[in-house]
């Protein structure tokens, strides 16, 4: 009887350990003081972080990644939010086609997207430019913005917009004073996803970043071909912390928006 209760729990714990352990190991290794990769580290130190922050070969791609991701956030959030607003009101047949096109990067294998983009962009001399990275990453980030904004739009009571119009707000004023503030959490979550999508993206970068727009993942990849030096562990740890923080923020925003919605609708069913 006792075994029946402990056995499942220990199995689940083991699998959870399998999930978390590799990431924890990377974090621990990054604080190693050894000059080579070994676990457990003989002593702890920040030398690999110093190595990262003092090496322009690492810092430059980091800045490229950040700038590209920021540009992607602006472009993807703007286009994606507008489109989500439109798609929700399209006739069904058109909506299915539009959603299919916009969401397809989620299922089309990454390599197919990457070489397709490489094939076309190289024709126009875009390969190796940050612009190409922004243009391509926006395509990959947009599905997340559209799904996130669509989800928050579907949670809005259409009577709120009617109420605004009945109170004398023009359609423009209704959008900026009512609709936009209400979908704002969804837009923010979409923007965070867009940032992470671009910041972590590698396959497209492998083909089109060339030498002129080397991003951080691309730099890590190049480095891994030659050595497994713990600097990569430090970089990895930094990106884990950054993405986990952004994802945590997104999660928190979504939860809060959900609670707000429930609080107002429960008082007036």
């Amino acid at each position: 009887m006792r075994l029946m209760r402990i056995l499942p729990a220990s199995i689940v714990s083991l699998i959870l350990f399998f999930l978390a352990f590799p990431i924890v190991v990377v974090a621990i290794v990054s604080f190693s003081s050894a000059t080579y990769l070994t676990f457990p580290p003989p002593a702890f130190g920040l030398r690999w972080y110093e190595a990262f922050f003092s090496n322009p070969d690492w810092l430059k791609p980091t800045w490229v990644s950040i700038w590209v991701a920021c540009a992607v956030v602006v472009l993807a959030t703007f286009l994606g939010t507008l489109a989500a607003l439109g798609i929700a009101r399209l006739p069904k047949a058109l909506r299915v086609v539009a959603a299919g096109l916009i969401l397809s990067p989620l299922i089309v294998p990454g390599i197919v997207v990457a070489i397709g983009i490489y094939y076309a962009y190289s024709r126009y001399g875009l390969v190796g430019t940050p612009i190409a990275m922004v243009l391509a990453h926006t395509c990959l980030a947009v599905p997340f913005v559209v799904t996130s904004v669509t989800a928050s739009l579907s949670g809005i009571d259409p009577r709120l917009e009617q109420a605004a119009l009945s109170l004398g707000a023009t359609p423009g004023a209704t959008f900026f004073q009512v609709t936009l503030p209400l979908i704002q959490p969804g837009v923010l979550v979409g923007a965070l996803f867009a940032f992470i999508t671009s910041f972590d993206e590698l396959i497209v970068a492998l083909f089109i970043s060339g030498t002129g727009a080397v991003t951080l993942p691309r730099r890590m990849w190049d480095d891994l071909r030659f050595q497994i030096d713990p600097t990569i562990a430090a970089v990895s740890t930094l990106t884990i912390v950054l993405t986990a923080a952004l994802m945590g923020a997104a999660h928190f925003l979504r939860k809060r928006a959900e609670q707000n919605r429930m609080a107002t609708s429960s008082a007036a069913p």
């Binding site: 999930l19 978390a20 590799p22 990431i23 190991v25 990377v26 290794v29 990769l37 676990f39 992470i196 972590d200 590698l202 993942p217 890590m220 990849w221 891994l224 497994i228 990569i232 562990a233 990895s236 990106t239 884990i240 993405t243 986990a244 994802m247 999660h251």
Partner: peptide, 17 residues
């Protein structure tokens, strides 16, 4: 979710280690 939020590259690197 932690691994879910970590890039494929970093997770593959972890397994190399």
């Amino acid at each position: 979710l932690l691994p879910f939020w970590t890039s494929v590259l970093v997770r593959s690197y972890a397994w190399m280690v």
